[in-house]
Design a protein around this nucleic acid. Structure first.
Lengths: 206, 206
DNA sequence: CGTGTAACTTACGTCACTGTAGGTTATCGT
DNA sequence: ACGATAACCTACAGTGACGTAAGTTACACG
């Protein structure tokens, strides 16, 4: 006979969010079922409805938490330093997130539910790219580049690190520092001037 | 009273594939229903089962067709020329595909069904990146680079163009040639040596 | 030591979709 | 013109998930 522990509202809420993140990561939004989430939390479905109103509500909370965290980390990494250091820092921050929060990353890469009837599905990471784009616009103006091109580069960089992150999740072979060095070398120097062995960035504190 | 045209087996098959691509593009695999596909084709569900055995079978055919086409186009674009021309050609080929076959592209970017119980979901474009990686390994060896890093760059480039392609699908503002010029400039020269206005590649015949 | 409230469960109704069995109609070849 | 066959449809059974109503149990607090 298992002890069916009875948790406080906030504790159960937190636990459900954790469990939901895992399930959404594994199955994607559509294929995930509240049944599985409730089962894993050793609870029945009505509990989930009580706390989050339904599947969409729970998903929204998970997403919001994850986006918040990721964007904050990237923003911190790009807050100071030379342009090159910002790029490398952002790449490292992103890949570190991929390493330390694989489930969260998986949720962000999977399809979001089709909310608005009009368009298709939007990758959550598009939002991240847009925020990066805002940062780029300022830099582009300052450097005399066409600010209309900024979104292109922002999305390109986010796409780079996202795709590499997905690949790295499977292989896990080179360290994130090494991978980040390669990526930022590509982004900064280009294939034309690629160094034989990119120098790793010294790890940041915290 | 609408003429319920009776088609030959192969014609109906072709039509169903076309319709299915649109529906899978809009809804993603999980949320797509054979019901909607059959309705749009002015047919009832059993017809679909007769031809493809079910949802997975139909999806498999759509995917196979699309992958085949995309990979062929990229391979052609990377078949000859200087390294830089190959990069730019590949980017342009990819973006042209995005422009001319938005539904196919959407299908490829959406989640694939979780076939194997073990892992998560695999983006279809990972396969594309792997094939590009094979091409890169040869070039890397020839140029004296570590071939183990080749997959990183391959995935980075595919991710770049994929993400930008997704963004471009929404905005449709700069022409694909312009976008391809920006992307290949980034990939080749890097942010460090970015030109003020990347030169467009002359359009290829056919 | 009761008692009220928060946490949780059992039970139910509904819906959308899948997959299949068996019957119906158009159309092609002769 | 008329059968044979391919193309198609109606109808049904089953499944899994969503969402809700009403009842039950554990725990805090006077």
């Amino acid at each position: 006979m298992v002890f069916r522990q009875r948790l406080s509202a906030s504790a159960r809420r937190a636990q459900l969010i954790d469990v939901a993140r895992v399930v959404f990561a594994k199955r994607g939004y559509e294929a995930a079922s509240l049944e599985e989430i409730a089962d894993r939390a050793k609870v029945t479905r009505p509990v989930v409805y009580e706390h989050f109103g339904g599947k969409e509500g729970l998903y929204a909370v998970v997403i919001d938490r994850e986006m918040e965290y990721l964007v904050r980390r990237i923003a911190e990494a790009m807050a100071s330093g030379t342009p090159r250091e910002r790029i490398e820092g952002a790449a490292l921050a992103f890949l570190t997130y991929v390493k330390d929060h694989p489930d969260g990353f998986a949720v962000l890469t999977h399809d979001a539910p089709a909310t608005t009837a009009g368009g298709g599905m939007s990758s959550l990471l598009n939002d991240v790219a847009e925020r990066v784009g805002d940062v780029f616009i300022a830099s582009f103006k300052a450097a005399g580049y066409d600010p209309k091109a900024a979104p292109i580069y922002a999305h390109a960089l986010v796409g780079m690190v996202t795709f590499v992150g997905q690949w790295w999740t499977d292989t896990r072979k080179p360290s994130v520092e090494e991978v980040a060095a390669h990526i930022s070398a590509l982004a900064w120097m280009g294939l034309r001037h690629l160094p034989k062995k990119p120098a790793k960035l010294t790890a940041k504190k915290a």
